[in-house]
Each structure stands twice: as structure tokens, then as C-alpha cells.
């Protein structure tokens, strides 16, 4: 036992050394001769900062920003909702906790984990490029492009959360004659739910960001407007749009803590 622990400690040290080495090597690949900061860029950056005072606040533009935000938020919420619907059952299977036979359960769990990994290893923009080819610039394209990688992320996390709940209450449920699925319903799910909700809301914030950058493939929304204004060097408009973006994330954050608080009391 002691010997094994020592070996583990040694291999951990080795890994640390290795990672430190890789980091040092990566420094050597940076070209240090030229200036790191582009001098002409500084003036442009200061210009950009200055236009924050004030941002574009005309009613017409605020209306545009609002409808663009609404569109982006709608995409994000729809994408995450679909991701929850797909990720939840996959997470249940990935946790390997609900099969009658351990053997088939484990086999299924490994297969589903591979599928989840594949889903999330491809970026939402790449999925979007694929779906644009199939469905054109439609809402379906955005929602599917968001839902697939986020299902992979949520499914994996849900599966882990199901397995991290304390064992005692589960054992007691089994002793009351509960089958694995009933143990999930009455034990794993209620105990994992607060963390699952918190994590899903956090991922909704990320999805807002992802929905915004769908403008890169030509999807309308907040990101699209930012791109247009940037292109015309209308920095005051860019600021307004960025503030809307921040506002949305803050709103989701507030919504999240309200939901979680109501769950606890």
C-alpha cells in the first residue's frame, strides 16, 4: 500500500516536471524580436475606449439592439432546452447507474460516453457550418448547432453529478426495495438537482455567447449587429451592443440564483 502511494507521488512529480518543461519550450517558440504590442493599434484602442462616452443611445438603435438581443437569447434558450432534453437521458446512461445488469450497463455507459465526447469535441461554429449547408440560415441551424455540443457537455456533467451523490441514502433506498431506476428518481436526481440546475444556467450564459458568434456563419442576432457596426467603425454602437450582451448574462445569473434559492427553501 505504502509503496504504491509513493509510486503515485513520484509519477505525479514527474508529470509536473514534464508540464513545466512543455511550458518553457512553448516560450521559446514565441518570436520575441518584434514588439509584442502593435504600436498603431494603441491609438485605435484608445479611440474605441473613448467612444464609450456615451454609447449610441438613440431610441431607434436601442430598439434594434433589443430585438437583436431577444433573438440571440431565444436561440440560446432553445438550444440549451434541447441540450437538456438530449443530455439528461444520455447522462443517466453514462452514469451507468440504472441498468439491471452491471455488464450491459457498463457497456452502454462507455458507448454513450464516447458519443457525448464526440458531440462536444466539435465546436458549435463547426456544427453551424455543417447545418447551414443542410438547412440554410434558419433557426433550426442555430438551435441544432448549439444543442449538439451542449448536449455533450451537459450529458457528461449530469452523469458525473449522478455518481457523486452520497452513497448512504442510496443504500437505504435499495434496502427499501427500490430498483436502480427508482434509486435514481428518489435519490440521485433530487440530490444532484441543485448542482445540475446551477451548471445548466451557467451553460446558458455560455450559450448566449455562442449564439452571438453564430454571426460568423451569417446568422442574425446580437453578434451580427456587432459585426456590422465594427465594420463601419461605429464604436459607440458596438459599445451599446456589448452592454446589452453583458446585461443578458447578468439577467441569466440573477434568474439562476432565484431559481436555486426557491429550490432550497
Amino acid at each position: 500500500m505504502g509503496g504504491r502511494e509513493l509510486k503515485l507521488l513520484e509519477s505525479r512529480r514527474l508529470l509536473t516536471l514534464l508540464l513545466a518543461g512543455v511550458f518553457l519550450w512553448s516560450l521559446s517558440t514565441v518570436d520575441w524580436r518584434g514588439p509584442i504590442i502593435h504600436t498603431g493599434g494603441l491609438a485605435a484602442f484608445l479611440d474605441f475606449l473613448a467612444s464609450l462616452f456615451p454609447p449610441e443611445l438613440s431610441p431607434g438603435f436601442l430598439g434594434l439592439a433589443l430585438s437583436a438581443s431577444w433573438q440571440t437569447l431565444a436561440y440560446a434558450v432553445a438550444g440549451i432546452t434541447l441540450a437538456v432534453l438530449i443530455g439528461f437521458p444520455l447522462g443517466v446512461i453514462a452514469s451507468g447507474s440504472v441498468s439491471g445488469s452491471i455488464r450491459t450497463g457498463l457497456g452502454l455507459a462507455v458507448a454513450v460516453r464516447l458519443i457525448l465526447a464526440a458531440m462536444r469535441s466539435i465546436h458549435e461554429l463547426v456544427w453551424a457550418v455543417l447545418f447551414v449547408a443542410a438547412f440554410g440560415l434558419s433557426s433550426l441551424t442555430v438551435i441544432l448547432a448549439l444543442a449538439l455540443p451542449y448536449s455533450g457537455i451537459l450529458g457528461r456533467i449530469y452523469g458525473e453529478l449522478f455518481n457523486q451523490v452520497p452513497e448512504g441514502p442510496l443504500r437505504a433506498l435499495r434496502a427499501s426495495g427500490a430498483s436502480p431506476f427508482r434509486v435514481l428518481l428518489y435519490g440521485r436526481l433530487p440530490m444532484a438537482l441543485p448542482d445540475m440546475l446551477g451548471y445548466t444556467f451557467y451553460r446558458l450564459e455560455c450559450a448566449i455567447r455562442s449564439a452571438a458568434i453564430m454571426s460568423f456563419v451569417g446568422i442574425r442576432g446580437l453578434g451580427y449587429e456587432i459585426q456590422l457596426s465594427l465594420h463601419d467603425l461605429l464604436f459607440d454602437q458596438v459599445w451599446t451592443l456589448l452592454l446589452f450582451m453583458v446585461g443578458m448574462v447578468v439577467l441569466v445569473d440573477m434568474w439562476s440564483s432565484r431559481v436555486r434559492r426557491s429550490l432550497v427553501s
Partner: peptide, 26 residues
């Protein structure tokens, strides 16, 4: 057989009612 544990091993997040009814899950 029914068992009552050293640490009562209830599901803390559920209302009392459901923890009691869990005795019926079998």
C-alpha cells in the same frame, strides 16, 4: 428485512413525506 442506519441516510433534499414513502418503493 428493513434497515435503519447509523447515519439515518435520508435524502436531505426531499420533503419528509417522500422520504417516508420511499419505504413503499419496493
Amino acid at each position: 428485512v428493513g434497515l435503519i442506519h447509523q447515519q439515518y441516510d435520508l435524502v436531505p433534499h426531499l420533503p419528509v413525506l417522500h422520504n417516508v414513502l420511499a419505504g413503499r418503493l419496493g
